[in-house]
Design a protein around this nucleic acid. Structure first.
Lengths: 213, 213
DNA sequence: TAGATTGTTAATCGATTAACAATC
DNA sequence: TAGATTGTTAATCGATTAACAATC
């Protein structure tokens, strides 16, 4: 019996990659895979695969045979997507980028529902974006205390990002996806931020540190 | 005299954060900063700051005083942006997301110029996006061998990403910014890919490993 | 059975942090 | 000078890799 140790951040970051790769295997009808083969295909080591699997739960690997693809996917799905409920997300900023991203969220992601959109321009308020009425940013606090969105997608200009991210953190937003070219990790040290850059371009993803994995 | 050791990947990843923070200091008129204070403000340790600075070049810190903000910015700028020339970038996929991202590149990033845009739909070809005429994707090879773009921004649907990324790697593209919900690191192990995910959503940035830092 | 592969412990590697002499 | 701070070496910490008995 395994006592799954809490997965470290590097392990957690590898999980989506396992998930997508195993999903591909499942689609081609492969039902079982060894750590050695999985590692070779994914460009890592068999040791790492086994170490990783040992902290995510009861993977039930069978000596001489390998792991059940289906079983691994079930475990990874529950870790990555929880109970399958979509996280309620709100969009902040409904300009060109916000419009495209709202479409991206509603059509290309499985993990979220967009429940509201906010903008500071009176011209945009009342208009519809991906089937959702745009609200004025002043309604943010009232809306959040009533509907408790968990994720905020920031599509505001750089200058607005700092102020609005402060409000969002205070409102208990769990994570954010930030397209504002602004580094959110400085003001909120308790929030993990993944920054992605090429030159000085920045896109970052933030989430609160949870107690468990 | 310092013999700057080659910076490791974790160090490199921290550079943009130093850059942005120091830029903010410069704007408020601060000309000098100690590792201790910089670390406190950025949420790291003074040791790490000094270790990092020691591998990026001749930072010329002065005992008892600290580092010159301007000097640090100069060093970081040259590392992050090279000679200041904008990297020629091409956009693949001119749908809703592509349109927004093209705007984002031309207005919010300093490191790139968008030199071409491609789409597979004949309806889009010939139209203009952020001031650039959309070409048919079949022209990709010819265009690249003539103009040698260094970065590709992928805004195609997930299904198209694998095939087109293979073509781009063959064409010598140095880096890509990928909005296609597709993990590029599996097929190209020599390309460093930063994946950012929240649930099953994926955005990734890829770049070829260079010999030097 | 024999070959393959797991689960887990030990060894290695690398990154972060601490310490401190040098010196502004 | 005395206090502050660097540059750099040493110590610690954590993650990755190797090894191997257990066993399918």
């Amino acid at each position: 019996m395994t006592t799954p140790s809490k997965a470290s951040l590097p392990v957690i970051k590898r999980l989506p990659k396992y998930y997508r790769y195993l999903k591909g295997l499942q689609e081609t009808g492969i039902t079982s895979i060894s750590s050695r083969e999985l590692a070779a295909q994914m460009g890592t080591t068999a040791s790492q695969v086994r170490q990783d699997f040992n902290c995510i739960g009861d993977v039930n690997g069978r000596q001489g045979i390998g792991y059940s693809v289906e079983n691994l996917l079930t475990i990874l799905e529950s870790l990555l997507f929880g109970n399958g409920e979509r996280l309620p997300a709100i969009l902040i900023g409904c300009g060109r980028l916000g419009k495209a991203v709202s479409r991206f969220i509603t059509t290309n992601t499985n993990g979220y529902t967009l429940i509201a959109a906010f903008d500071s321009s009176p011209d945009e308020v009342g208009k519809t974006i991906s089937g959702i009425q745009i609200r004025h940013i002043d309604e943010l606090e009232d809306f959040c205390s009533e509907h408790h969105p968990q994720v905020a997608v920031l599509c505001v200009p750089r200058e607005g990002a700092e102020q609005v991210s402060g409000r969002l953190v205070n409102l208990g937003i769990e994570g954010f996806w930030n397209f504002s070219h602004y580094d959110l990790s400085v003001p909120y040290p308790n929030v993990i931020v993944e920054n992605v850059h090429l030159g000085d371009s920045l896109m970052s993803l933030g989430f609160r540190l949870r107690n468990q994995d």
